[in-house]
């Protein structure tokens, strides 16, 4: 297994921490991992992205141009990374705030209304965990139990009481994700 993921969105949507959670969860599941953030002008406002790689083998390049999965949370990110998905790969997008649908027909496409759900859950901060749940439903590369362990690593101790809420969010995401285009 070698899963190369790009996660992109606005700063503040939890893009970087999503990548970190996936990677820490990968470590808990004895995988090789690498996480590379955009730390440039993006970090100082605007779009943010990170590359997360989870693999059975040691990882050569931490920086990539083509990805197995792109998770895009706003329109600029979809514009930038839709074409970077490998043929046969997966694109997950958040419905809220998108002005157009993806154009590609040679990839699997899923959408998720994570923001609306996080509002219903009365905590928009779990938005990114809903998306992670959706991703793990489509690509079950990590066990939920290890994701929870990974979360414990990423969250400072003072937030550990929020872990059950995050777990709930992941499960909600698993239910919410919708297939828009499925390749055979």
């Amino acid at each position: 297994m070698n899963e190369e993921i790009i996660i992109a969105g606005f700063g503040g949507q939890g893009v970087l921490s999503m990548g970190q959670i996936l990677c820490y969860s990968g470590v808990m599941q004895d995988k090789e991992v690498s996480w590379m953030p955009s730390y440039g002008p993006e970090m100082r406002g605007g779009t943010a992205n990170c590359t997360a790689i989870i693999s059975d083998e040691p990882i050569s390049s931490p920086v990539l141009n083509a990805f197995d999965t792109a998770i895009v949370l706003n329109q600029p990110s979809m514009d930038k990374f839709e074409d970077a998905v490998k043929p046969g790969g997966l694109l997950i997008y958040e419905e809220n705030g998108m002005t157009r649908k993806p154009r590609r027909t040679d990839i699997n496409i899923c959408s998720i209304a994570a923001y609306d759900e996080s509002v219903k859950m009365k905590n928009t901060k779990v938005f990114n965990m809903i998306v992670i749940g959706g991703f793990l439903k489509v690509k079950p590369i990590l066990d939920l139990e290890n994701v929870i362990k990974g979360l414990k690593k990423v969250l400072p101790d003072r937030y550990h009481h929020l872990i059950p809420l995050n777990e709930e969010a992941i499960k909600k995401g698993m239910d919410l994700i919708k297939e828009e285009n499925k390749l055979n």
């Binding site: 990677c23 470590v27 090789e32 991992v33 996480w35 590379m36 990882i59 931490p62």
Partner: peptide, 10 residues
């Protein structure tokens, strides 16, 4: 360099 400094790994 910036990549090695900023990336996370085991």
């Amino acid at each position: 360099d910036g990549i090695i400094g900023q990336m996370m790994e085991k």
